[in-house]
Computed example of a mutant assay.
Amino acid sequence: MDYRFEEDKELADHAIDVLVRSQELSSDVQQFLDYLAVYQSEAPAILPIKTSDRIEMIKIDDLVLIDVDGPSLILETLKGRYIITDRLYKFKERLNNSDFVQVSKHGLININHLEALEASFSGNMLAILTGKRKADVSRRYLKNLEQRLGL
């Protein structure tokens, strides 16, 4: 990837114009565009979640693991477990936080709570998280996790 800065006095104050050029709209290009979109928006520090009987305020930093269980999402935090009714992709959009990486069709982990990755059966990996929590990492999502970890 090549990048450079060009000064343009005709732009309005505090305006930034970004042009991404490539031969095609590859997955790497799309990932970079997605990164730029997330960079511009502000990630919340606290996320309200609606349980069956109340609304809880969860600190994003305390959220360790999100896993799908049928029509529900299980949120594993440092302070306990919450079960909510939501879709994984919608919850991920609400989080708007690049620290959360999808590791399977049904799970997200907070990489700040990742302690180790262990080999599992059939080429999958097992993520060991804070508090001895575990999450399966499917082969399909492993490359993305490794990139996010800088491997």
Rank of each mutant, 00 (worst) to 15 (best):
D2T: 14
D2M: 12
Y3H: 10
Y3E: 07
Y3N: 11
F5W: 04
E6F: 13
E7H: 15
E7P: 13
D8L: 07
D8V: 01
D13I: 11
H14E: 09
A15V: 11
A15W: 03
V18D: 12
L19Q: 15
L19H: 13
L19G: 14
R21D: 09
S22G: 03
S22Y: 05
S22L: 02
Q23M: 07
Q23F: 06
Q23V: 09
S26Y: 03
S26D: 08
S27H: 12
V29I: 12
Q30A: 06
Q30T: 10
Q30W: 08
Q31K: 12
Q31A: 14
Q31F: 09
F32M: 09
D34K: 11
Y35L: 15
A37K: 15
A37H: 14
V38Y: 08
V38T: 13
Y39H: 14
Y39N: 07
Q40I: 04
S41W: 04
E42Q: 12
I46A: 07
I46T: 13
I46E: 10
L47N: 00
P48Y: 01
T51M: 02
T51E: 03
D53W: 13
I55R: 12
M57F: 09
I58L: 15
K59Y: 11
D62Q: 05
D62I: 03
D62H: 05
L63S: 03
V64L: 01
V64I: 09
I66P: 00
D67W: 14
G70K: 07
P71L: 09
P71N: 12
S72L: 15
S72A: 14
L73K: 02
E76C: 13
K79D: 08
G80P: 09
I83H: 06
I84V: 01
T85E: 08
T85N: 09
D86M: 02
D86V: 00
R87C: 04
L88M: 05
L88Q: 04
L88S: 01
K90G: 02
K90D: 05
K92V: 05
E93S: 05
L95Q: 00
N96M: 04
N96P: 00
N97H: 03
N97Y: 00
D99K: 10
D99T: 06
F100I: 02
F100A: 01
F100E: 03
S104D: 00
S104N: 02
K105I: 08
K105Q: 08
H106G: 10
G107M: 08
L108K: 01
N110R: 02
N110Q: 03
N112M: 13
H113M: 00
L114C: 11
L114A: 12
L114R: 11
E115Y: 13
L117Y: 02
E118H: 06
A119D: 12
A119C: 09
S120D: 11
F121T: 13
F121N: 08
S122V: 03
S122W: 01
S122P: 10
G123W: 02
G123K: 05
G123N: 04
M125I: 06
M125L: 15
M125W: 15
L126Q: 06
A127G: 08
I128P: 07
T130D: 12
G131H: 06
R133N: 10
R133G: 02
V137H: 05
V137C: 05
S138Y: 06
S138G: 04
S138Q: 04
R140I: 04
Y141F: 04
L142M: 10
L142V: 05
K143G: 02
K143A: 12
K143V: 03
N144C: 07
N144K: 15
Q147G: 07
Q147D: 14
R148P: 00
L151Q: 13
